[in-house]
Structure formats: C-alpha cells, structure tokens
Design a protein around this nucleic acid. Structure first.
Lengths: 189, 189
DNA sequence: AGTATTTGCCTAAACCTGTTAGGCAAATCC
DNA sequence: GGATTTGCCTAACAGGTTTAGGCAAATACT
C-alpha cells in the first residue's frame, strides 16, 4: 500500500487549517487522520498525544502571529506602531480564528519560555519606546495593551458585539485612539 | 433502591462546582454522575445533552456574576462605580474560575438574548452615566471596558502575567485609574 | 387503605475519541 | 539484491455520549 507521507510538520500545519475551519477544540486526532485518509493509530508515530498536537498548533500559531506583528511594526513608531500592532493582531484573529484560539492555549512554563510568546512580550514593550514610560508603569501598560487587544478580539469573535448597530471597526479605531491618548498622558514630564 | 433526588437545578449547581474544581471543559456527564453516585444514563432524564449541561452552567454563572456586580454597583457612581465593577468582575473570576469560563461560552443568539448577559451590558452602560459620554462614543467605551476587564482576567487566569515580578494587583489598580482618566478626557465639554 | 399512574434510576448496547502493542510491507542503505 | 529501518496497519481496551426499554419507588385517586 502506498504511504501517505506524514510528518509532524505536515500534521501540525493541517491541524492549524482544521482549527480555522471547525474551531480549535474540535481539532482531534481522528479528524486529522480522516483528512489524510489514514488510520488513527498511524498518527501516533508522529505525535505523542492529542495534547501534543494541540501544543504544536499553539506554538505554530504563536510563531506565525509574531512574524506578522514584526512585519507590521517594522519602520514604525509611536501611534503608528500602536495602530499597526493592533491591526496585525485583530486581522490574524479574524483570518485564522482557530489558530488564534490555539495561541491562547495554556502552555507549561518551560514550553512557554521557549515559544514565540517572549517575542510578543518584547514587541509590546517596543511599542512603548515611543512613549517614554518608566517601570513599573511600563509593565502595567504592557498588561493593559495585551488585555485590551486580546479582550476585544475575543469578545468580537464570540459574537459579543453583534447586538448593537455600531460598527466594530469604528470602536476599534476609537479604542486605539484612546490608548494612544492615554499613553501620552502617562509619559514622563 | 433509594432514589438520589436529582433535579436539573441540582445538577447544574454541582456542575458549576465541578467546573471550579477541574476546569470548565473537564465538566462531563460522567463525572457528574460519579459525583452523585448514580449511573450516567440517569442524568438524561434531567439534561438533554452534554451541551445542554454546559449551557445551563453558563446561564447560571452569568446570573450569579450579574447579581454580584449589581450588588457592588449599588449606591456608587463615577470612578467609585468603575472600581467596584472591576473588582467584582475580577474577584468572581478568581473565586470561580470554572464558572467564569462557563460565562464566556458562546451561546446561540436566542439563548443569549434571554440570559443575564443583557444585564451585564446595561450595568456597563450605567457606569458611563458618571462620565457624560454620548453615542456612539458610549458604545465604543462600553466595548473598551468589556475588553479590558475580560482580557485582563483571561490573561491573568491563563498565567500570562506570571513571568514578570510586578504585582498584578498594582497593574489592575493602574489600569482602573487609567480608564477613569480616559473616560473623563472623553467626556463632553 | 389499596390500586393506578407517573417518574426516576437502572441495564444494555451502539458509536466516538484516545492510546498502546505488535505485525507486515515499503522505502532506504549497503 | 539482501538487510535494516520506518510507516502505516489491525486489534484491543479505556473512557465519554446518547438512545431504548424495563422495573420499582413515589405520588395521585377512589
């Protein structure tokens, strides 16, 4: 019988696509095997477990998102950088909802420390360079930015804004504007 | 054989407790049956499905959280109300992580419209009465508050803040402060 | 009270996902 | 071309979900 040519790489990639189509928590070893026209047990040569697959997708998504954000940030500063960061984040979540959900998977500390998550933190801090904010306020600001962006995207994705007529696009712009205003206010004199 | 005295109410309540102990997505009909010392099939007299159970827990949590927020808000206005709202929200998530996760379950539109979710929206809007912000900015502000609070709690719960020494308590206070400052700036002249 | 009816929990069974163990054949290496 | 590695397979078991049908406890009726 001809072989299917599975690799861990391909499985994780396909898992990411599957996540976008059916939702991250519907990603299952069985569904993945079906997609490759292969028996379930065959995947266990490439993946340790279902959890392993999910972690792999999470790491993949974190990396991909970090790359996008880095691209968006290149050559920008101040409010420009803030807006670009925000847009990259939100666009990714809308284009790849399953991967975005994956990126929010809780990782064990070691895995997290070796992931692209640290790049995310660095880039968020980089944005604040345009605003001259010292520690510990800088950390507070990093946490606030992360909260707003993640919170907004998460609420929007779960349909939380669909019961008001106001365009989410406008709210997003208003919020970015507000954050810029706030960070300027918080800048050292 | 003596009966166990199951009711939909009791099952949902026990499910909420179970969620706090083992995590919302580990809540399962089987685990619930074990907890009552009863066979799995018996629960199907009271619950239509596993999904039904989860929806029930979500509605219960939304209600409970709305009650707490309403209590916290009573007799307060302006920044006081803002801080109380924020505290109620965060405290609930820390006390009842499973229920908080349940409250974030995506509900179908009809169910959502009949849930305590609408009270949450109303209360968030009520806070803004202390700041004199007109539409459509009011909607933007509601969305921003929701995003920050949910985003912060969600990131904190998933361990996102554990790699920096800065006290999350301080960050929270800083953020509430910032939001107050921002809303005052956005007030009509 | 004693009978009739409802209702609650049971057994049994089918189907799905996850996981491990062991086998055979295709690909690869000399 | 023969030996070895490696990939996918079958088989089997452990949960979880859900439906169908049965017996006995609780409740309602006269």
């Amino acid at each position: 019988m001809a072989r299917a040519g599975l690799t861990t790489e391909r499985l994780i990639r396909a898992g990411a696509e599957l996540a976008d189509e059916v939702g991250f928590d519907q990603v299952t070893i069985s569904a993945l095997a079906r997609r490759f026209g292969v028996k379930v047990a065959s995947l266990y040569s490439h993946l340790k477990s279902s959890q392993d697959l999910k972690t792999g997708i999470a790491l993949f998504a974190l990396e991909e998102l970090a790359d996008r954000v880095a691209d968006a940030l290149a050559g920008r500063a101040g409010k420009d950088a803030l807006a670009a960061f925000a847009a990259a984040y939100r666009d990714y979540a809308r284009e790849h909802p399953g991967r975005y959900a994956a990126a929010r998977l809780r990782l064990d500390p070691d895995t997290a420390a070796a992931s692209a998550g640290v790049r995310h933190a660095q880039m968020t801090r980089a944005i604040l360079r345009g605003y001259d904010i010292a520690e510990p306020d800088q950390t507070h600001a990093v946490r606030m930015l992360g909260s707003v962006f993640h919170g907004y995207v998460s609420l929007e994705m779960s349909g939380g804004f669909s019961h008001t007529a106001v365009d989410p696009e406008e709210s997003w712009a208003w919020i970015v504007d507000s954050l810029d205003m706030l960070l300027r206010n918080r800048s050292a004199p």
